[in-house]
Nucleic acid binder design. Structure first.
Lengths: 339, 339
DNA sequence: CTTTGGCACTCCAGCAGCGCGAGTGCCAGG
DNA sequence: CCTGGCACTCGCGCTGCTGGAGTGCCAAAG
């Protein structure tokens, strides 16, 4: 009972089916792959694979199609991730290194992923809570209003306007600014926010309210819905694979609009967050994604993973190359962010 | 030769077809509408309308379907734009007034439009070049770098980092900041940028380069590709109308990804930019949009139109209500922006 | 125990044929 | 100028058929 060969058969079925989108039969299999056995033997193997739930036939007298579980085994038992050609590597590096700021990096990354994989690409903005604080700036802009600018280590910039009851002297602002930066610069925002909580105590009573408001604004930035942003591209690629979605692509597009869902996908990483994770079909908790697969990876400066990126496509997807591409792009983005 | 009645027939055909998606025949027409004549008469009218190119039949012995030209006449000869119910008005006002900043306004607007019209919604960010300058802030952030923050009258905030050869004294920065604001505050950015061109001359030679860089940065903000941003929502609605797109929705999704195309749509407004404009099917220059219609309007603070918004859907669209919704939303957004 | 060739069986895809019905154009009469 | 009547057209959907791909099983061979 050659366990090894059955795996090879599964692999062959997945490969052929991904390529042709047609159920693959035992005869076609022995012709296209050097399996060294006859079609009858393959049929026996297929029967076993079907018992194990790894493949299925759409109807009697049709070839076999991989099930979600089959894809799962295929992915888990992948011998080696396909290496990328050096031309591809150079294209990635060149395209990303031309970016001028963080928005541009994210924008380029998502487009690059979409065009390389021919799937829907998703990129999360570096999350504030996992970033360090580079600088906090306070700017009185007249009318009793104060602009608070937060510059994160990843280059992300957030601004908020606070409405004070009256204008504040520049000297006070300068003092507050200096002490906030002294406390927070270089630290994780989360950490900085908690350290700053006691800051108002050190100020004269008449300024405490001002300081309190600024500190709270910084803390709020962490909590907001919108602090977690996500960008996507290549939705048009779904249409190309329209045939692969049983119910049409409507539910999938719906899911893509719910950014919360996408964020959850990107945050549910594997043990090693910088490794590539794959979620397949029914494994998704969200209804609309049950006919899709998602390949994700974390990225970030140095060893800190600050956000996730990935691609989404039909379960009938070329996993090896998609995984290789996602991994490569995640690495290059991380590298680009470290400037 | 009752010219009037033929128009009524066209109207009836458009209405029925929009509702049922089925070619409408002469008999069904007299049943569903009080036209006061027999089906034979309608048939004669239909023959004329077909000669004029306003309706067509998919094949002999099928009912009639409006052509793009037919929709055009229907829209142009629209007697009155359907008024919105007060409940709807309140829903719009309530939803938009809850926004906390510009990003939030834009985000809410686009979602609101998409859900009200059940189509794809597009909202352009207030363009910088058509906005006024509220404030310019310069912030030294160490390492010879200077953060330039531009706050526009619409609430939009742009920031850029300039790399100087060395750190600059705060007193110099304060001087530059004061003079820049004196020159530009309250003016249109475009105008301010040109006034500022001569500003470096008034400074000591050793600071001219600094001033020049800041001024150029502000000017560059106008030129950048990315200065014109556009946000969309409701792409999933396309799937619902999948049947209305002859070639499937692929090309349409493609067009939606090219933001440049969308921006052109929104900027090609009518003579009165705050009025609602409609572009139908073949009237589009972009290939992928030939099977869609777009309803747009400008919006902005007071009488200044600073950006556009609109919805996109199949040519088989409920024009009267869509137009009413777009108009109402554009007005409310304008009102919300005036704070 | 595993592999193989053979064989009967199943069942879908695709095509042809056909009747129904909706809808039209035209004409003669009001 | 409108209307009722009538012959005509043509797509849609149904049915029935057939070819072929693919399977499962079995008995024989390694």
């Amino acid at each position: 009972m050659s366990d090894e060969r059955r795996l090879a058969v599964l692999r062959a079925i997945v490969e052929d089916y991904v390529q042709t989108r047609e159920p693959v039969g035992s005869k076609a299999l022995v012709e296209r792959h050097q399996l060294g056995v006859s079609s009858a033997t393959i049929r026996n193997d297929m029967a076993v694979l079907e018992d194990e739930g790894l493949i299925a036939q759409p109807h009697t007298s049709a070839g076999r199609v991989p099930t979600d579980a089959g894809y799962r085994v295929f992915v888990d038992r992948l011998t080696a991730v396909k290496p990328m050609s050096s031309a591809e590597r150079q294209a990635i590096a060149g395209f990303l290194s031309g970016a001028v700021d963080l928005d541009d990096v994210v924008d380029r990354t998502v487009r690059l992923l979409a065009s390389l994989t021919q799937q829907v690409a998703v990129v999360q903005y570096p999350s504030l809570s996992r970033s360090t604080v580079r600088h906090v700036e306070l700017v009185p802009i007249g009318g009793g209003r104060l602009l608070v600018v937060l510059i994160a280590g990843t280059g992300r910039v957030e601004q908020r306007v606070i409405d004070l009851s009256q204008d504040v002297e520049e000297s006070v602002v300068a003092d507050v600014r200096a002490r906030i930066n002294a406390e927070s610069s270089g630290r994780l925002l989360r950490e900085a926010a908690s350290r700053l909580e006691s800051l108002p105590d050190g100020f004269a009573p008449e300024h405490r309210d001002l300081v309190h408001q600024v500190v709270r604004t910084l803390g709020d930035a962490l909590e907001e819905q919108r602090e977690e942003r996500v960008v996507l591209a290549g939705a048009a690629n779904l249409a190309r694979f329209g045939q692969d979605f049983p119910q049409s692509i409507g539910p999938v597009l719906d899911a893509l609009e719910e950014h919360v869902v996408l964020l959850r996908l990107l945050s549910e990483l594997s043990e090693d967050p910088s490794a590539v994770a794959v979620r397949i079909g029914r494994e998704h908790s969200h209804e609309g994604l049950r006919s899709t697969s998602v390949v994700t990876s974390g990225y970030g400066t140095g060893s800190d993973v600050v956000a996730g990126l990935g691609v989404l496509g039909p379960t009938r997807m070329d996993y090896p190359t998609t995984m290789a591409t996602v991994r490569a792009v995640a690495r290059y983005v991380s590298r680009v962010l470290e400037r």
